[in-house]
Design a protein around this nucleic acid. Structure first.
Lengths: 184, 184
DNA sequence: ATTACTATCTTGACACTGTCAACATAAGTT
DNA sequence: AACTTATGTTGACAGTGTCAAGATAGTAAT
């Protein structure tokens, strides 16, 4: 239903009706509409985490290629699941602290994972060592997030640009990376 | 009211009541709630455009500093007017083509302006010349947009990081820029 | 086996929303 | 003076999230 009608169109009543159950039945499983949304977002995070690890565990790729795949994978995941992505990283949940504790427990490690990865990439020379790790990961993630949002909301970019945009971004970030280390 | 209650909390009825007028009065000035939102967003674009030009017309700054100011100005504008920014670049309007023609006429030139600037920066050597201009401006704008959104939605970044994040981003993008040209 | 409890579902009701239709009134134009 | 337009009004409808009170069935405890 999220995929069909979008996050705004998702109504508890219609959802209940579609399930063949009365309007207030969902309230015995979720305190709130918000809690339902948080639960869905939670699943999204787990799914994405699984997805990311699969990319990182590919052994037949160079460091830069792996980063490229990660970047591309992130954008594709967002583009393929626009409504879910909006739920996971959108204001509906995060604005004004509406996120469930459960959701936080899944989301925050996912954020930290990103910082950890950035640190590794810096140490391996893929990303500039001079920059503060936290800032750098905020910026690089910000870039992925921003591109994802532009795509999802249909502003100024569309699906056919994905590959080229990602390549451009990765080039920018890894400018100083010497390809020699690839060969080792 | 947008600033107080946010974009979701803005209701036509409350707005009318606050203005001391009946519920359906607004409908004689705007066809829709959507049209009202578009009109507000339109003002936002004009305001921002004005803001951006003011930054570009500063003559006492080096090229890189000017870019830095632009970047910072964008993020600050978003952080200072979170609800307005959300309206201007959020899914409420753009998702599924709900934007008014009037809004489009103001917004699209604003997008093009960004591309034009990117081209200039490339020619002046501030940004990498090798990259496709459109892709590059999508990526750089994506970065600004993404950071803005993370800030606004309170994910993974907060207001105290603004300056450092912008500096980090500008450093990344202008890596190959020789400072010599600054002195000329 | 009876009792108590808990999980689940139900209908009724409330306040809120955007929006339409029908009607009123005042201002300006012909 | 008559007509048109801009602007306002109340009434009504369908939709929403959510609470309260009651129904039913399955499980655990005595």
């Amino acid at each position: 239903m999220l995929k069909e009608t979008g996050i705004e169109g998702l109504s508890l009543r219609k959802l209940a009706e579609k399930t063949g159950v009365s309007r207030t039945a969902p309230y015995h499983h979720f305190k709130d509409k918000n809690q339902l949304l948080c639960a869905i977002a939670e699943q999204g995070f787990k799914h994405w985490q699984h997805n990311a690890e699969k990319i990182f565990n590919q052994t037949d790729l160079s460091l830069k290629e792996k980063y490229h795949q990660f970047f591309l994978g992130y954008i594709r995941y967002a583009a393929d699941n626009p409504e879910l992505y909006d739920l996971m990283f959108g204001r509906t949940i995060w604005k004004q602290n509406k996120a469930t504790q459960n959701l936080r427990d899944v989301a925050y490690p996912s954020f930290n994972y990103q910082v950890q990865m950035t640190q590794d990439w810096q140490q391996q020379g893929l990303l500039p060592k001079g920059e503060n790790t936290l800032r750098l990961s905020q910026v690089t993630w910000g870039t992925m997030h921003g591109i994802a949002r532009l795509l999802i909301d249909g502003i100024y970019a569309d699906q056919t640009h994905i590959d080229e945009m990602c390549e451009c971004a990765v080039n920018l970030f890894t400018q100083g990376f010497s390809e020699v280390t690839d060969a080792i």
